[in-house]
């Protein structure tokens, strides 16, 4: 009998240890709609919950949305002037700084053009050249006068920080979770992914890059082990068709037309989520040649380009993370 109990207890202890191992690595998971996209959160560790993330994103959306009448940004666009502080001031500062660095391929004043194409309302239309020319006269950061707290817009100019808002939200949530002592997390906010720390089970993070021909499947994967921001901008993400022509949502601020740079998508890898978000849009507008030149003169991001010819090109810092596809390396 004594022997039987010894065996029984040993087996029970082993089973308990196995089960304990399973529960200790089980993450908290949640999905919710915000910023006009489906977001998902997975986090490991105590000190924070997924509702902390959704609350932070909802707080930022209430400030930064260009489509909510009550947001600080909408009130600025309606009045032409406003006092900004906190996140709104910080994001506008970063948007203007990024636009200046890139030289116009990213511009937070394209909102009148985006509206003319019907992307915010989803009532799509093709504006004629006269309308585009009229709106282009109000586009450009020279029309934004910001001293760090007071911002004034020239007549007809309106701001849209949507090009970097999700990246800023991901960055902000990452900082919040780190402060709360979260061990590891992955945030997927539309085309933005932010990882925090390393996965508790010791395996690497694996993030697929969507196949432009079938965005529910991956065309390549990025494998890495620590905190990183990854953002993809692609022509396939939002578009409409009229008279057999496809018009996508990434507009060239210089022409007011959907950017035709020969790329299907650009994925940017960086430490900073806001930077990665803005750069993915900008590199898509720039195209492969200009984007490569810009990368060679920078040291704070890496990129993966998918071209219209079906080629995949990775900058030499991104290449070690890339697998599951054939690709060429862009050397510095």
């Amino acid at each position: 009998m004594k022997r039987f109990f010894t065996v029984f207890l040993t087996a029970a202890l082993l089973t308990a240890l196995l089960l304990t191992g399973c529960t200790s690595t089980a993450p908290q998971e949640a999905e919710f709609f915000a910023m006009d996209t489906l977001m998902s959160v997975k986090l490991w560790g105590e000190g924070a919950s997924t509702s902390d993330v959704s609350a932070e994103i909802n707080r930022l959306e209430a400030l930064l949305s260009a489509t909510r009448e009550t947001s600080v940004l909408s009130q600025l666009n309606a009045a032409g002037s406003a006092e900004l502080s906190g996140d709104t001031a910080s994001l506008l500062t970063q948007a203007l700084s990024l636009s200046e660095r890139i030289g116009g391929a990213f511009d937070p004043t394209v909102y009148p053009l985006v509206e003319a194409w019907g992307f915010p309302s989803k009532e799509y239309r093709v504006p004629d050249q006269t309308e585009l020319d009229s709106l282009l006269s109000c586009v450009g950061t020279a029309h934004v006068h910001f001293d760090g707290s007071t911002v004034t817009l020239d007549a007809g100019t309106r701001l849209d920080l949507g090009g970097i808002a999700k990246g800023y939200a991901a960055q902000s949530c990452a900082e919040l979770l780190k402060e709360k002592g979260v061990e590891a997390a992955i945030l997927s906010l539309g085309g933005n992914v932010q990882t925090i720390g390393s996965k508790p089970d010791g395996s690497a993070w694996v993030v697929g890059i969507a196949d432009p021909a079938d965005p529910s499947q991956a065309i390549a994967r990025l494998t890495f082990e620590d905190s990183m921001a990854l953002v993809t901008s692609g022509a396939y993400q939002r578009y409409f068709e009229e008279n057999g022509v496809i018009y996508h949502h990434i507009l060239d601020p210089q022409t007011g037309l959907p950017a035709g740079s020969g790329l299907l998508s650009v994925t940017v890898l960086a430490e900073d989520g806001t930077l990665a978000d803005g750069l993915s849009t900008a590199l898509f507008v720039m195209g492969l040649e200009e984007g490569t030149r810009f990368w060679r003169n920078s040291n704070d991001f890496e990129a993966v380009f998918l071209t219209s010819e079906g080629k995949i090109l990775a900058t030499e810092g991104a290449a070690p993370f890339l697998s599951g596809c054939e690709y060429s390396v862009i050397e510095r």
Binding site: L38, W205, A210, A218, Q237
Partner: peptide, 22 residues
Amino acid sequence: VCLPNRMVIKFADEAGYDALIG
């Protein structure tokens, strides 16, 4: 995903990815 109708069809097989960007 259908954003306006808040409808989501999820699959059990996520092909081993932690996330898919795009």
